[in-house]
């Protein structure tokens, strides 16, 4: 499941159309759209809105595995071409000068660049950076829920010195994002794959639930069981379930038996 945060309906519409997203939880604080694999939230413009929407999306769309997060939106730059897209490798909050560095383990679809999050649209384009209004709120908020590698900002250039922000219309925004749908989809697929790779080792042993159904485990015993079963599956593909285990009366005895069984497993590599 990938979660996308956009600021404006004009940024959302192309994605909703492309992915066939349906309105969900329509009485909530933020418009939410989703399908089986993706959720999209429209935050509104600005840092406070972006932070709130990111947290809202996390709370209202729970998953049992780490998911990827993508902030997609338009942004300005002094000289980059309209329609060009970049991934943020550095994010600076203009108001506080705080900075973040989204780790880059995926090859970006195009360039990566520094993004400066401002509180009002810029008209001067003084620095050689991408100007947006949400990234510095989205990224640190998303990083409360997921590792930085899985939270990325993708910005499509909508204005520059030659075509300033005053000329940006909703139709232009829609069209700029629409033209990048293939690239966005490629990025989303790869981010999802990365999230799966990161989350996979944390999946429970296939027989974990069977243990819980057969004996009564306390919370701390469940943690120990999870750990022991992870160790078991790291060492062998065989099931831990056997006659000796089946005879145990209590969770405590089961855990001891499992530890004993682990000691008897062969130790080799490769």
């Amino acid at each position: 499941m990938i979660r996308i945060v956009v600021a404006m309906p004009a940024e959302a519409r192309p994605l909703i159309d492309y992915y066939g997203l349906r309105s969900w939880n329509s009485n909530g604080a933020f418009p939410l759209y989703r399908n089986e694999n993706m959720a999209l939230i429209v935050s509104g413009i600005g840092k406070t809105a972006a932070a709130a929407a990111t947290a809202f999306a996390h709370a209202h769309i729970p998953t049992d595995r780490p998911s990827a997060w993508l902030n997609i939106g338009v942004a300005g730059h002094p000289s980059r071409t309209l329609g060009e897209a970049v991934i943020a490798h550095k994010i600076v909050d203009f108001a506080t000068n705080n900075s973040w560095y989204p780790p880059q383990v995926l090859k970006p679809p195009g360039d990566s660049d520094s993004v400066m999050t401002v509180d009002a649209p810029v008209t001067a384009y003084d620095d050689d950076v991408v100007y947006d209004m949400e990234a510095a709120a989205f990224f640190p908020t998303a990083c409360r829920f997921v590792i930085g590698e899985l939270a990325q900002c993708y910005k499509v250039i909508s204005d520059n010195r030659g075509s300033p922000v005053q000329d940006v219309t909703m139709d232009l925004i829609d069209s700029l994002v629409r033209n990048k749908l293939n690239e966005i989809d490629d990025l989303a697929v790869r981010l999802n794959r990365l999230a799966d790779e990161y989350g996979k080792p944390r999946s429970d042993h296939p027989e974990f639930e069977r243990f819980l159904e057969t004996w009564r485990f306390s919370v701390s015993q469940r943690h120990r069981l999870r750990r022991l079963l992870t160790q078991w599956s790291a060492r062998t593909e065989k099931s831990p379930w056997g006659d000796e285990l089946g005879k145990q009366k209590s969770a405590k005895d089961v855990l001891s038996q499992l530890e004993q069984q682990l000691l008897t497993l062969p130790v080799n590599f490769g």
């Binding site: 560095y101 383990v105 990083c143 997921v146 590792i147 590698e149």
Partner: peptide
């Protein structure tokens, strides 16, 4: 920084 993955970064370190 917190919230980063040594494991994932090993595939593409900077």
């Amino acid at each position: 920084r917190k919230a980063q993955s040594f494991r994932l970064q090993k595939s593409q370190p900077s």
